[in-house]
Design a protein around this nucleic acid. Structure first.
Lengths: 347, 347
DNA sequence: CTGTTAGCGCATTCAT
DNA sequence: ATGAATGCGCTAACAG
């Protein structure tokens, strides 16, 4: 009758019997709030639990207590370093808070996101964190909002990590401000003429960064001519293609190319090299995000570093601390301009 | 009495009452196995559930059925692209199988790993997947083995993703074979004299790759002199430092530097550039893993591509298909040598 | 301080 | 085909 021969997990009942105490005493010894149990009994219970390999059934505890110790996290794509970094922050924060986290991948699909929210609500998590750019489907957005509000109305907390577009607490990075600062730094480096690679305009992230960059230039009386802005995909391949289109259309007097994220910038650099456009002497390049590749490309890429792990941590903090007010809270984390070899100072 | 005013989630009981049917009928309509309920009633139940925003309580279902629909995944560090890729494979596989996955981060600590296993066992997951290199602490390993065996003896399935060292089903990548093939390819490119950067010898991954590389050279009558093998950390910083030590010690006639993983190779390239050692003309460099940065560095890095997402998928498949036999199953996924500009053909 | 008992939300026998 | 009743593993009153 050793532990390894059982075919179903030991229950609290088993432990109580093995220790010769009541169910309640066993419960109190193992998980009970404050010690209110004879040290002698307690030891016997612990020993019995150890002997039986007992592990409390979390589902049962959740049911009995009426509150779970779970956090649900939704990300677009965990293999994307951007989300991976945020997830890392969330996971470590959750663990510190004693929460187990369950994760779902939306694959950048609003339908899947909605489905996952429904599924994960079944867990009765204490917190639901949604990460990733919002979509533009109004119907789906509305359905999602309803679902999330229902969740909140039953005691759950939802935190969005992205742009503030739905009426929930959200943590965002300062895309506009970071891009604006980047532009100003670049002007400080002596650049005067610019081109840009941006994502589809429905992506708020892309829009905000481009707007910030533009305004940063405008502050110095400079501008980004529309014909030098190419809209492409938010990926490495998009950057590669976009750079090709830019070159084909003629670089003109452009001195610096701003890509709204690093992977696009890296793709662009690759294409520029193939096209025989030297970076940075013929065209400087700057990105946004500071992915780890940024410092390893040649020349190393100037960019804006986002405190991604902190974003995850902030999301947890927001979710766990205090009550949800009437007005959703908005936490904005600033980026930091990092100038590297891809944008050297100009004569 | 609209849904948003409730302060606790609707229960099946609420739905039954709202629909004017019994609890059992409601249950059968919403989650019951095969349709055995009048279409009329069924519709009423579904409508009531919709109206109330009812979502089945997963914990309650788990308790009632005695089996959960959860999978637990442990990774060392989710921000590491290696684990992120595997996690992506696991998550998508789990979802296809209708499993919710909960995740834990071990931070490469054997203690934390053991703690997490205990905690996650509380969820009564159907499957437990452990990812990451095994450690060398015998006591901890034994405790972990016991815990995992207890889990298996109560119906759970465990799959290890890493080297085969514990007596459980495992999915591994062919580190030895990949490195061996890489070495042979490099010899084919005309390289004859080598140096290497390896991780601490307790890391089996590092050991296997180095052994494979050595044997690949040996197959052609070549070898890797011990004084040209520097042991350093398994990280970018480790590669950076290691390359520095190598240069300081004198490169001798070394033509190619093999780093046991890509991040180390990238760190090394960075250091070599700083030291004025041109890559590849003075020293070629090759890595292992094919992280996305590999093709973006200059020169692009030769390496061995590992089918990481497939590894995750294979782990799930192994866990879900068939019974655990007496002997643990071992699945090995091969890598693929990818030659790039960092190791051009030599005269 | 300890033991008894009544739920928690749901699935599932067992009758009907 | 439907409903009433039992139990899953556990916590939290409630008595003793």
């Amino acid at each position: 009758m050793t532990e390894t021969l059982r075919s179903s997990p030991a229950t609290l009942h088993d432990v109580a019997r093995e220790a010769g105490v009541s169910l309640a005493t066993a419960s109190r010894s193992l998980n009970g709030s404050t010690r209110k149990v004879n040290e002698d009994y307690r030891a016997r219970v612990l020993a019995a639990a150890e002997r039986l390999g007992y592990v409390a059934n979390l589902s049962a505890q959740t049911i009995a207590k009426g509150t779970s110790s779970t956090l649900a996290l939704l990300v677009s794509d965990i293999a994307d370093p951007y989300f991976a970094a945020i997830a890392a922050g969330v996971l470590s924060g959750a663990e510190q808070a004693g929460l187990i986290t369950t994760m779902g991948i939306t694959q950048r699909s609003a339908e899947r996101e909605l489905d996952l929210v429904k599924t994960l609500r079944g867990q009765r998590p204490r917190v639901l964190i949604l990460t990733g750019s919002r979509y533009v489907d109004a119907a789906l957005d509305e359905a999602l909002t309803r679902e999330l509000q229902a969740f909140e109305s039953t005691g759950g907390r939802v935190v969005m990590v992205s742009q503030r577009s739905l009426p929930f607490d959200t943590v965002q990075t300062d895309n506009y401000g970071g891009a604006r600062e980047l532009a100003e730094s670049l002007v400080g480096q002596g650049y005067r003429s610019f081109a840009a690679l941006t994502g589809v305009s429905s992506l708020m992230t892309a829009r905000d960064r481009l707007a910030g960059f533009r305004d940063g230039l405008a502050a110095h009386g400079l501008s980004l001519p529309d014909e030098r802005v190419v809209e492409t995909e938010f990926t490495r391949a998009g950057g590669y293609d976009g750079a090709g289109r830019l070159v084909a259309g003629g670089l003109g007097d452009a001195e610096l190319l701003f890509a709204v994220n690093d992977v696009m910038a890296v793709g662009a650099m690759s294409r520029l090299r193939e096209e025989g456009v030297d970076v940075p002497s013929s065209l400087a390049v700057a990105g946004f995000d500071d992915i780890s590749t940024a410092r390893d490309v040649t020349p190393a890429l100037s960019t804006v570093r986002l405190p991604l792990e902190q974003v995850g941590a902030a999301a947890i903090e927001l979710a766990l601390s205090g009550q949800r007010g009437d007005e959703p809270t908005l936490v904005t984390l600033g980026g930091e301009v990092v100038l590297r070899a891809s944008t050297p100072a100009r004569g």
